[in-house]
């Protein structure tokens, strides 16, 4: 009797919070296919009446969305590839290679991770401005190429892997670079996937950096363009179906990756926990 009651109670809680966490997305999806008056009159309804793709079409012809999408794809692809390479290299060196200054570098890495990102907004702008790359693709991309947390995750991973396989390769006469490329990297696959996933979602969703790095609308990424849409670059009306649709399209890539690779996101959250 008691287990039946607590089971029922447990499911009630799960379903209630399931609705709380998912229904906003239901509203978002349905409202993207509503007319503006329908969205305003029936904000809770999950069914568009009438159904229209008008807002979605206007996203592509009436806003800078296609440009933002291209920029987001460009930035994300470059940043993910660079982070996977540079962070794994740095993590490997900090974990395995013996060289003078290694401890100092690792302490510096931990210190970098402790700096709250939002505090760096003005400082980063100053550097971009001084280097003459403010409001350009390099300014948008280069500062994101390495992520301290990514280096830390890779270092932790290499610390946890036995050194014997590489030693064998090294004794066979392979140099440091050969060993790294053909023995270490293939072995590090799980950590590299975690790093790829975290870099992808982090870069795809990155907003404050694009805010201080560029001001030319041709260089906007999706989050920056969305924020611009909301703050009234649209002109008349609230145009919620259009805004919600644009936000929806920007969310889809991360949603797909999340559903497929959820356990890596979980691992990422746990890694984030370990550094505390």
């Amino acid at each position: 009797m008691r287990t039946i009651f607590s089971r029922f109670f447990g499911y009630a809680i799960l379903v209630f919070f399931g609705l709380v966490f998912l229904y906003p997305f239901v509203i978002q999806i349905s409202s993207s296919f509503k007319t503006e008056s329908d969205a305003a009159a029936n904000p809770l309804s999950p069914i568009p009446h009438p159904f229209t793709t008008d807002a979605i079409e206007r996203i592509f012809v009436g806003t800078g969305f296609p440009t933002w999408l291209m920029n987001s794809v460009l930035v994300t692809v470059i940043v993910v590839l660079a982070r996977v390479l540079f962070c794994s290299m740095a993590g490997y060196a900090l974990s395995r290679l013996r060289f003078r200054g290694r401890r100092v570098l690792f302490a510096g890495l931990l210190a970098t991770m402790a700096v709250p990102p939002v505090v760096l907004l003005i400082p980063k702008f100053l550097v971009l401005n001084q280097l003459g790359i403010y409001d350009s693709y390099p300014g948008l991309i280069v500062p994101l190429l390495v992520d301290a947390t990514g280096c830390f995750i890779m270092k932790q991973f290499f610390d946890s892997v036995p050194v014997s396989v590489e030693e064998a390769a090294r004794i066979d006469g392979a140099g440091v670079f050969r060993t790294y490329w053909s023995v270490v990297l293939p072995m590090a696959r799980p950590a590299l996937i975690t790093l790829t996933i975290l870099s992808f979602s982090g870069t795809w969703n990155e907003f404050p950096h694009s805010l201080i790095a560029v001001q030319n609308p041709a260089l906007f990424t999706l989050p920056r363009g969305l924020a611009d849409l909301v703050s009234g670059s649209l002109g008349a009306g609230t145009q919620y179906p259009l805004k919600l649709g644009a936000a929806l399209l920007a969310t889809i890539p991360v949603a797909i990756i999340f559903v497929i690779f959820q356990r890596y996101f979980v691992r990422g959250a746990a890694e984030g926990g370990e550094r505390g």
Binding site: N205, L226, L244, A246, V259, F265
Partner: peptide
């Protein structure tokens, strides 16, 4: 399933989700 549902909002873009909540908290909103 429920773990996925509860976890999903935290991986979405803060800007995109802010747009959704602006709509939900609008004067005649959800």
């Amino acid at each position: 399933f429920f773990r996925t549902a509860f976890f999903f909002p935290s991986v979405t873009s803060s800007v995109a989700i802010s747009v959704v909540f602006l709509f939900m908290f609008a004067n005649g909103g959800a």
